[in-house]
Structure formats: C-alpha cells, structure tokens
C-alpha cells in the first residue's frame, strides 16, 4: 500500500510533552513523540542500532532515547549520544528517517512521502474546542466509516458529512464532532474524535459511550463479514 497525503495519527491531547507512542499506517510502524518544548515528531519506529522500537523508549528534553542501549536522537533524527561510547563523536550517518508532521483541529497528522518538500498542504481544520477520544477497532477503515453513520445509541442518531476520505463531520446529539480516520492496517483502523463546541464532563460522557459502542458494533460487523467470507 502506498501512502498518499496526510494521515491522522493521534489526538494532540494524548501525546503530552515528554512522551511517545507507537502507531501504524497501512501496517508500517511509526513513533510519535513530543519534546519538552511541545514540538511533535513522527519518525520511523526503529532504532538504527538494533531495530528496537523507539516508541518503547523515553523522551528527555529534546531527545528521544532507545530503551535498549540508550542511544539518543535529537529532533533532526540525528544520533547525538551513545552511552557505551560517551567520548565518541557520533557519525552523521546514524540517523532515523523523519516524516512531515502537522497539528490541525486537535489532531496530529503525518505525511509519509520520501522528502519533506513533497508534502502537500496540511489539512485545514477549525480549532477543536474539546478532544473526545480515539477509538481503535479491529476492522477495515471503510467499514468503520460506514458504521459511524448507522449507529444509534440511546437517542443519539448521527448525521455524517464526508469532508474527505479521512475527515468526517458527525452531528450527534446537538454537537458537531470531527472524526479523523486512520487506516492502521488491512483489518485495523482508528478514529480520532474531537468536538467543535466546548463540552463539560456530563456532555462528553454519552459521546464517549457512543464511540465505545461504535467500536463494538464495527468489530462485530467485521467478524460477521469474516465468517461469511469463510462460508462462501
């Protein structure tokens, strides 16, 4: 699967300064991390030393360090420090591939073209008032998108407008949500959901429960589809 354009990867809220996580797009592994100054970074999730996932590592200031042997990389992806060889000037060739990153609408986006210069303009989204939650489901992204518009839960009936194939506007219970679609792998997907209006905890809770139910519903449909496939 080739990459095209910008992919939503996480809610900005969920990657706090000084933290990291792994993610996948079409099965390829990436690390998302945020330095102590608030800058977000999206890299290949692989330490050049022994191939350990950098998302298992830890952020110190504006470096991310591999959990395995503590090799530290600066925000340019350049290895700056190797604890086993503290006096070594680290060769310039020890570098982690980086990708273009943007934050728009309360979501972190990555673009995986080879060169930074080739990145198309980042998604334009209004500033989100509240981050709701991400859901991660064992189902293909198109199925998850289809179920978003069909799932009624306790009087919450969604009305979906497709902004593009990775951005949905969902009117739900008098609120406007933006749901950003991440194709994680062939049979895995994620939605990163933000709200356009300020919401208090009492208003957020039923929307979060709706999202949980959406995950259950989409996975149940994916399982039934898989069974039909086997039977056919």
């Amino acid at each position: 699967m080739s990459f095209r354009g910008w992919y939503p990867l996480a809610l900005s809220r969920d990657i706090a300064p000084g933290t990291s996580t792994g993610t996948r797009v079409h099965g390829s592994e990436f690390v998302i991390w945020r330095d102590d100054k608030g800058g977000a970074h999206v890299w290949e999730d692989r330490c050049p030393h022994r191939g350990m996932k950098l998302s298992f590592g830890f952020v110190r200031g504006d470096h991310i360090a591999c959990l395995y042997h503590g090799w530290q990389y600066d925000t340019a992806g350049q290895c700056r420090y190797i604890p086993a060889h503290p006096d070594l000037t680290v060769p310039k060739t020890i570098k982690v591939p980086r990708f273009s990153v943007a934050e728009a609408g309360g979501v972190i986006w990555g673009c995986f073209s080879e060169e930074d210069d080739d990145a198309p303009p980042a998604p334009k989204l209004p500033v989100a008032a509240a981050a709701l939650r991400s859901i991660f489901a064992d189902c293909p992204a198109p199925l998850l998108v289809e179920r978003v518009g069909l799932l009624d839960v306790e009087g919450l009936t969604p009305d979906v407008s497709t902004i593009d194939d990775r951005i949905l506007e969902v009117r739900l219970g008098g609120n406007t949500l933006i749901a950003c679609v991440q194709p994680v792998a062939d049979k895995e997907s994620a939605l990163h959901i933000v709200a356009m209006e300020e919401l208090d905890a009492a208003q957020m809770k039923p929307l979060a429960l709706w999202a949980e139910e959406l995950r259950r519903d989409a996975e149940s449909f994916a399982r039934k589809a898989a069974i039909r496939e086997i039977a056919a």
């Binding site: 969920d14 706090a16 933290t19 996580t21 792994g22 993610t23 998302s55 939650r133 991660f136």
Partner: peptide, 13 residues
Amino acid sequence: DHDHFPALRRWAR
C-alpha cells in the same frame, strides 16, 4: 503494546 491505550498511558505516568 501500549499504543491503543492513551488514557492508560497517562494514568501509568
């Protein structure tokens, strides 16, 4: 992995 559990990552911190 911890990737799909953002609220638990925050709690664990």
